[in-house]
Simulated scan of single mutants.
Amino acid sequence: MKLNSRIVGDAGEYLVAYNLSRRGLAVALMNQGAQGVDMLVTNDGKDVVSVQVKSSQGRNQPRQWMVGKHQPSPSAHFFYVFCNIWEDESKEPEVFVVPSEEISKSVNWEANVPLFKIKDPKKEEKYLYGWEQITNLFSLSE
């Protein structure tokens, strides 16, 4: 079923929050309109990770997402999580966890619509369901 983009975005955020919560982390969703961050993640309130979620819906594997017009300030505690939510409801969503450093250096920020594209199969494998990139910052076991 084709969903409107707002619902797809919300579904992606809830999917990411669920996956991080089930790994023992506390997740706080930000208010609509918060600039550059969709959620804050912590295990004890001392350490915090910021997450920006980008979701898309389609019939195939786009492997590219719009990332906004402003280049992020790279940080070891800032991640983008890209969600492919399929029109075919029987398919489980795909989730790619990507450090902000990778986004900052690999996107053409001069483009009319800056896109992040996964071109390298090794990186795709690393990022696909790569929750450990976040959980390892908190010394939690998967």
Results as ranks from 00 to 15, higher is better:
Tyr80Cys: 01
Val67Asp: 08
Ser106His: 04
Glu132Met: 05
His77Glu: 10
Lys122Asn: 07
Asn43Ala: 11
Asp88Cys: 06
Asn19Phe: 15
Pro99Tyr: 03
Asp10Gln: 15
Lys91Asn: 11
Asn43Asp: 14
Glu142Ile: 15
Gly45Ser: 13
Ser75Trp: 00
Leu15Ala: 01
Val41Ala: 00
Ala26Val: 04
Ser141Arg: 14
Val41Ser: 00
Tyr129Trp: 10
Phe79Trp: 09
Pro74Gly: 11
Asp120Ile: 04
Asn43Ser: 15
Phe138Ile: 15
Asn60Phe: 08
Glu92Pro: 13
Ser90His: 07
Met66Asn: 14
Val97Ala: 03
Lys2Leu: 11
Gly130Ser: 06
Asp47Leu: 11
Gly33Arg: 04
Gln61Ser: 12
Glu89Pro: 05
Met1Lys: 01
Val67Glu: 12
Ala34Arg: 14
Asn60Met: 08
Tyr80Ala: 00
Pro99Asn: 03
Val41Trp: 00
Gln133Asn: 14
Tyr127Val: 01
Met39Arg: 00
Trp131Ile: 02
Asn19Pro: 14
Gly24Arg: 09
Pro74Asp: 13
Lys119Pro: 09
Gln32Ser: 05
Ser104Arg: 15
Leu40Tyr: 12
Val81Glu: 00
Val107Leu: 12
Tyr129Ala: 05
Gly58Ala: 10
Lys117Ser: 10
Trp86Val: 07
Leu29Lys: 01
Val107Arg: 06
Pro72Trp: 05
Val16Ser: 06
Asn84Gln: 09
Val27Met: 06
Trp131His: 02
Arg6Leu: 08
Arg6Asp: 08
Pro99Arg: 03
Asn19Arg: 09
Met30Tyr: 03
Tyr127Ile: 02
Ser21Pro: 11
Val16Met: 07
Asn136Trp: 13
Asn60Arg: 09
Pro62Trp: 09
Ser21Phe: 14
Thr135Phe: 00
Lys119Cys: 12
Tyr127Arg: 02
Phe96Leu: 04
Lys69Trp: 11
Glu101Phe: 07
Glu92Phe: 13
Asn108His: 11
Ile134His: 01
Asn112Arg: 12
Thr135Asp: 00
Ala17His: 04
Arg23Thr: 01
Glu142Asp: 13
Leu115Gln: 13
Lys123Trp: 11
Glu102His: 07
Lys46Tyr: 05
Ser100Pro: 07
Lys122Asp: 02
Val97Thr: 02
Glu101Leu: 05
Leu115Ile: 12
Leu3Phe: 12
Ile85Cys: 03
Gly68Ala: 13
Pro72Thr: 08
Glu87Cys: 13
Phe116Gln: 01
Asn31Arg: 08
Val97Glu: 01
Gln61Phe: 15
Ile7Gln: 08
Lys2Met: 13
Lys54Asp: 10
Val49His: 06
Lys122Ser: 04
Met39Gly: 00
Met30Trp: 02
Tyr18Trp: 11
Ala28Thr: 14
Asp44Asn: 09
Arg59Asn: 09
Glu92Ala: 14
Glu125Phe: 02
Ile134Ser: 01
Val53Gly: 04
